[in-house]
Write a protein that binds this DNA or RNA. Structure first.
Lengths: 238, 238
DNA sequence: ATGCTTCTTTGCGCCGGCGCAAACCGGCGC
DNA sequence: GCGCCGGTTTGCGCCGGCGCAAAGAAGCAT
């Protein structure tokens, strides 16, 4: 059954950064914990937004679906990140759906609770603005990328972004630490799984990446960066 | 020289909605007004973010430039809207540049001032979240559009968006109420001015729009909606 | 008017990337 | 083991839209 989470966990989260002990206790008191098995849809696009969510453990992907069923992967997120929080400011409906790609632990607050918390502790609202602002900038950057860059570079960017978010060092390079299909990559970069597959195959032939089903390891990150940034000489060492 | 603006103007702005008289006075006391001639660059991408801005009158476009000079028009905004506000939450640098497309009147606050205001009046922070949330949703929607839809539909969407923001009824239809070049449209939709030109010409031939240089009138909005939404039958009447 | 600049239109050729379709591969249940 | 299913690869043909280039128009300045 749901119970209050450890305050220490919250304190590490950007949303609750720099809160006094007392405020933090207030936040904890109103939180609800939930275990979410892999594959669960945490919420659906268009649902009435019920709460702000914070991921304690696991990974979640945020997918938006268009009128004709075309999907776009908007975001992958990991432990410590918030999601669905902005929905309560956007007409009260989730603008996308959240899927647990691994087993997850999340805490959430009801909308009125969160609102009240923010009124009581302005710091939280400011933190939220800070987070949202950063995310906003990222989305804008992606918008520029997708409207001005070719597919290959977009895929490179997407992979690098994922590495930054969920990269884990392994002996052969950096691995993206959750199931990631060609289709997912296609939906993040506005292309098709065919093209993604072809591109990865090409890179694999050049020893830049190594991929199996749902799984990608970047063996030569610097060369991927070179592709993403369109550098002339893919240096061997830096 | 700069002076304090009329409180009534502020009260109509989403950021200061539902503020008590006293709080509003506080806000006004710290605001600075500025006149900006058409064509001025209000701030540049990468500049240290100095202030939150609010447009009292005129129109502004927000443009992001990529490493190789490729540009994207992120937003057009009109009287009553805020801009550059999120920059202070994004590492303190403007993520894009703001250009006055008409003569403008703006008010602004320094970053510390605005921060202090938000601490003192949480309502402002909540309003900011609300605005930012809405904008965020729009950008996400645009991201989906641009990655899944073909050029023609993207242009249609862009025009409709502009009509919503700056549409003015005229006898022949709805006019977009500021200078808008083919190049601008191209940069909003991730295509080239050539393609935009061709598309508009085609629509002009069908009597859907009428355009001159820097100026577009939509004569048959419903048919444009039909294109944007990919409806089968472009009904003549609804 | 006369030119100059800026924006726009249009033709033409090419190519990146999509769409379809078929084969392949690895894992899982039976 | 065997077959099935979901993910992946690859070939092939086509086409939307880009790029180049050149020629209009519409303002603006002199």
């Amino acid at each position: 059954m749901p119970h209050s989470p450890d305050p220490a966990v919250l304190h590490g989260m950007p949303l609750f950064k720099a809160l006094e002990r007392e405020a933090l206790a207030d936040v904890v008191r109103h939180a609800q914990t939930r275990l979410i098995p892999k594959g669960t849809r945490i919420f659906s696009q268009g649902d009435e937004a019920l709460a702000g969510h914070a991921l304690i453990d696991g990974q979640v992907k945020i997918v938006q679906t268009g009128p004709d069923g075309q999907q776009v992967v908007l975001h992958f997120l990991g432990a410590g990140e918030m999601f669905g929080t902005l929905a309560m400011f956007m007409g009260g409906k989730y603008p996308a759906e959240a899927l647990a790609v691994t087993d997850c632990v999340e805490i959430h607050w009801s909308v009125p609770t969160m609102m009240a918390l923010m009124e009581r502790h302005p710091r939280i609202a400011l933190n939220a603005l800070s987070i949202l602002g950063r995310r906003f900038g990222e989305v804008q950057k992606r918008l520029r990328e997708i409207s001005t860059e070719r597919v290959e570079r977009r895929i490179a960017h997407a992979l690098l972004r994922l590495v930054r978010q969920a990269g884990r060092r392994v002996e052969t390079g950096v691995e993206i630490d959750f199931p990631l299909s060609r289709q997912d990559l296609a939906e993040m970069t506005g292309t098709t799984l065919h093209t993604v597959s072809r591109t990865l195959s090409a890179w694999e032939g050049q020893g830049i990446v190594a991929s199996t089903r749902q799984h990608v390891v970047i063996t030569e990150p610097h060369r991927l960066v070179a592709i993403a940034e369109d550098l002339p000489a893919p240096k061997q060492k830096d």
